[in-house]
């Protein structure tokens, strides 16, 4: 029973970690960047490739390879995020595209990225590991949790804390929110809106690689994961409140826990029904989510 709760928290932490970046982008540009999941997964594939290179040809350790790969691919993907905004999303915006248009365009981008990943890396699952041996998790109050899972939870909590502060207490954070609420007004007041959005996309994409690489340690990598993750992220952000950092955490956790309890009591085949049932309920009853933005 407690194990089920722990399972929900672990998986919820994973969802939350990706939702943070998604919400961050929403704060700045006010549309759903559906391709975000695929961007993160692409970055994770890069991490995998670099780690493989270091481990197999340079004689480096698995962990050093991973960290090195993580660093490089996060930066590269961060830049990719900026490019996506500058050359793909911004022209659409300038053309006067509506929010629904942006969602459709973003979905098109998701399909492109997902298939590019399939083309470049192949359809077989790729595994990233930190050690050659699978170890049993730590036993803690009759529940089991592995090192990697603890790491994910810690990174999630730290990220939520850091980004919450970032958005609400720093100049840049306030600038991001200002741009999101009214970019013209923000520009008038002297906020360099373009630069702010670049920074947002960079940070969010950077974070997505961190998140996806950690997740890949748990579940390996397949080209289809981008879509799978973003669907969960949407549910989590609707539950928690789109644009809110705290909401990302709570939404992700609620989703994870609901899914697992649903799986436990109704059977795992109903897991998706639970997730999307929650989505429908929240959209109908509390569309702004738990934490208003």
């Amino acid at each position: 029973m407690f194990q089920v709760l722990v399972n929900g928290i672990i998986v919820g932490g994973i969802y939350a970690l990706i939702t943070i970046g998604f919400n961050l982008i929403y704060s700045a540009v006010r549309f759903y960047h559906l391709a975000y999941g695929a961007v993160g997964i692409l970055g994770a594939y890069l991490t995998y490739q670099i780690q493989k290179f270091i481990f197999e040809t340079q004689g480096g350790g698995l962990i050093t390879g991973f960290l090195f790969g993580l660093l490089i691919s996060s930066i590269v993907t961060g830049m990719l995020g900026i490019l996506i905004w500058k050359f793909l999303y911004r022209p659409l915006r300038k053309n006067g595209a509506s929010n629904v248009s942006m969602i459709v365009a973003s979905f098109g981008l998701l399909i492109i990225l997902q298939n590019l990943i399939g083309l470049i890396f192949g359809q077989s699952a790729k595994t990233i590991r930190l050690s050659e041996v699978t170890t049993q998790g730590y036993e803690f109050l009759s529940a089991s949790i592995t090192k990697n899972q603890i790491l994910i939870l810690i990174v999630t909590l730290v990220s939520v804390f850091v980004f919450e502060l970032f958005l609400h207490r720093t100049k840049i954070g306030t600038a991001i929110r200002a741009v999101g609420q009214n970019s013209q007004l923000a520009a008038v007041v002297g906020v360099k809106t373009e630069k702010v959005i670049y920074i947002t996309f960079f940070i969010a994409s950077f974070l997505s690689v961190l998140a996806s690489s950690l997740i890949a340690l748990e579940i390996s990598l397949k080209p289809t994961y981008g879509l799978m993750l973003i669907l969960k992220v949407i549910v989590a952000s609707i539950i928690g409140g789109i644009g809110s950092m705290r909401g990302a955490l709570v939404g992700g956790l609620m989703l994870g826990v609901a899914e697992n309890f649903g799986a436990y009591y109704f059977g795992s085949q109903w897991q998706d029904t639970v997730a999307f049932g929650l989505l429908v309920i929240f959209l109908l009853v509390r569309p702004q989510g738990l934490f208003k933005k």
């Binding site: 194990q3 289809t224 799986a263 436990y264 059977g267 795992s268 085949q269």
Partner: peptide, 17 residues
């Protein structure tokens, strides 16, 4: 007797049962 949907990545609760 547990059934999971295609594409599931987290089996911990099934394994708990």
């Amino acid at each position: 007797d547990e059934i999971f949907n295609t594409g599931t990545t987290d089996y911990k609760t099934i394994l708990q049962k």
